Every structure is written in structure tokens, then in C-alpha cells.
Computed example of a mutant assay.
Amino acid sequence: MTDTPIESLSYEAAREELVETVRRLETGGTTLEESLALWERGEALAKRCQEWLDGARQRLDAAGESADREE
């Protein structure tokens, strides 16, 4: 787990860290406190990934609408 602010992560970096976080949670061997911290970070990372995907969808939709108007 890194201390990098989640809002500064690219989609790829957030997704990679999320995958690693899930792996660590599934593997076990952490204290309850560590597991909770991993879970919270994982939730925030998943939200960040969804924000990136939502933004990409909006951009694609806007580009499609723009192309339709030009035709």
C-alpha cells in the first residue's frame, strides 16, 4: 500500500494498486487493523477507477454527439 494521494493516481496506477490490495487481502496474514486500512484504501481506489471510467464514457459520448451533429 502506498501513501500516494488517490486523487492524483492515473486509472492504470489506481487499478494496479487495487489489484495488489485485493491480493493482499485474499492472502491474509495481516492484522485486523491492517486489513481494515487495506479495505478502506481498496474502496477508495475502486471509486477512483470508476471516476476515470465515467469520465472516459462522458468524453466518448460527447465526441459521438459532436460527430453526429457534423454529419
Rank of each mutant, 00 (worst) to 15 (best):
55 G>Q: 07
11 Y>P: 02
59 R>S: 12
39 W>G: 09
15 R>Y: 09
1 M>E: 12
38 L>Q: 01
49 C>N: 03
3 D>L: 10
56 A>R: 12
61 D>C: 09
52 W>Y: 02
18 L>Y: 14
71 E>A: 11
35 S>T: 06
22 V>S: 13
25 L>R: 15
63 A>Q: 07
18 L>I: 04
47 K>V: 03
60 L>K: 09
25 L>H: 14
24 R>F: 08
67 A>M: 13
67 A>G: 06
69 R>K: 13
10 S>I: 02
52 W>S: 00
14 A>S: 06
52 W>L: 03
62 A>N: 10
56 A>M: 10
27 T>I: 11
52 W>P: 04
56 A>T: 09
27 T>A: 15
12 E>K: 08
34 E>K: 14
29 G>S: 01
8 S>Q: 00
32 L>V: 15
64 G>Q: 03
47 K>E: 05
6 I>F: 01
30 T>Q: 08
35 S>P: 04
1 M>W: 14
3 D>H: 05
34 E>Y: 10
26 E>F: 12
47 K>Y: 06
66 S>L: 14
56 A>H: 10
27 T>P: 10
58 Q>L: 12
52 W>H: 08
42 G>S: 02
55 G>C: 07
63 A>H: 11
27 T>F: 10
37 A>L: 00
18 L>S: 06
21 T>C: 15
65 E>Y: 11
52 W>K: 01
44 A>P: 07
60 L>W: 07
59 R>D: 09
46 A>Y: 02
33 E>N: 06
47 K>H: 05
57 R>F: 10
25 L>T: 12
40 E>D: 10
46 A>C: 03
40 E>W: 08
58 Q>A: 14
52 W>A: 03
68 D>G: 07
31 T>R: 05
53 L>N: 09
63 A>G: 05
26 E>W: 12
19 V>R: 13
66 S>R: 15
56 A>Q: 14
71 E>N: 15
47 K>I: 07
14 A>L: 05
4 T>C: 02
40 E>M: 07
32 L>P: 10
13 A>P: 01
35 S>W: 03
25 L>G: 12
30 T>P: 02
69 R>N: 08
26 E>S: 13
45 L>M: 04
31 T>C: 09
8 S>V: 00
35 S>L: 05
32 L>Y: 14
66 S>N: 14
11 Y>G: 04
18 L>T: 06
66 S>D: 14
64 G>A: 05
26 E>V: 15
59 R>A: 08
48 R>H: 04
49 C>M: 07
68 D>C: 09
20 E>F: 12
44 A>L: 10
35 S>V: 03
46 A>H: 03
55 G>K: 06
15 R>E: 11
71 E>Y: 15
59 R>C: 06
43 E>N: 14
9 L>E: 00
30 T>L: 08
9 L>F: 00
65 E>C: 09
3 D>F: 11
18 L>C: 05
16 E>S: 11
55 G>W: 02
48 R>M: 00
71 E>F: 12
41 R>K: 06
41 R>E: 03
11 Y>L: 03
61 D>K: 15
5 P>E: 12
42 G>L: 05
62 A>G: 09
52 W>R: 01
15 R>F: 09
29 G>W: 01
39 W>Y: 11
69 R>E: 08
45 L>V: 07
3 D>N: 10
10 S>Y: 04
54 D>T: 09
61 D>G: 10
